[in-house]
Design a protein around this nucleic acid. Structure first.
Lengths: 156, 156
DNA sequence: GTGTGTGCAAAGGCTTTGCAATTGC
DNA sequence: GCAATTGCAAAGCCTTTGCACACAC
């Protein structure tokens, strides 16, 4: 029992996230821990509410869909998770601290490229800050465009 | 009667758009013309399907909601219009050729800033092209971040 | 014990679909 | 005239909500 304060077995969930919950005055329920753990495992995957529900269901059959939605709302309110929308408008959630890359999405074939070198956007971010006092977060919404393959097809 | 080939009175709709429809083999129905005209008037406004329906309804009371959705789909398929999703996941449509600015969206207060000087993103676009062969279109998805006001509040 | 959080079931909003009738070409 | 397009009404999603019960603290 390496941590006797941990009230529930939460698999691989790091203490950092649990501490985060506590610090923000949120109760540690199995449902919240399961959802957070799943988000943590999914790292940069950006997962849909229904997927979260289905995958938690496998290990914790008494969870309810509306709990998933409410939990995501609460966690987003306190800043622990964020969400965006893919091309078809469906919601995708991820841990706020896992925003660490740009997403390139091909609007033709739908494929996606992750860009981990964030410095690539530095000059744009600086310019937006200087000219519009806007602190841009390029990691939040994906960047639409054409992937190499689809661009080649278009040119032929 | 400056143009006897025009089959319907389409208000201020430019011939360019009508020609576009014809060229792509789509029929010129009053509904399509009304919707296109509205999109043209809304220029950079990025309008929701329901708004399109309501506003067309005022001048053309026999239009149907599903026609709006189907028309938008068809027009998007042939590349005449595009759509994105605002923070809450709601769809927003606009003419493809009116993509001419970046949208900054504050994820705190929801306010939006238009950036017409696209050259601001040139270095990012060039870098994405060189390193990933990805032809980015920054005008499609909005850019999330904090506006000046919300950033100030956060720092106080 | 208290009040937050959950399950359940129902409602809500936006969008899609099947089919018959209409209408542009 | 024929096929594309529309209107209508119903269904389908995804998401939210009201309320009573459960449980974390």
């Amino acid at each position: 029992m390496e941590d006797q304060h941990r009230p529930l077995e939460a698999g691989g969930l790091t203490n950092a996230v649990i501490e985060d919950l506590r610090r923000r005055g949120l109760r540690l329920t199995p449902q919240r821990l399961m959802i957070l753990e799943l988000l943590e495992q999914s790292k940069d995957e950006h997962i849909a509410p229904e997927d979260i529900y289905q995958r938690v269901l496998q290990r914790y059959p008494m969870i309810n869909r509306s709990t998933v939605y409410r939990t995501l709302d609460v966690l987003e309110e306190v800043g622990m998770v964020r969400h965006g929308h893919v091309e078809d408008g469906a919601a995708r959630y991820h841990l706020a601290r896992d925003c660490r890359h740009l997403h390139l999405i091909c609007h033709k074939c739908g494929c996606s490229i992750d860009v981990t070198d964030l410095s690539i956007a530095d000059s744009l971010i600086r310019a937006l800050s200087e000219r519009f006092s806007f602190q841009a977060d390029l990691t939040h919404f994906p960047i639409s465009g054409l992937c190499a393959g689809c661009a080649a097809k278009r040119n032929s």
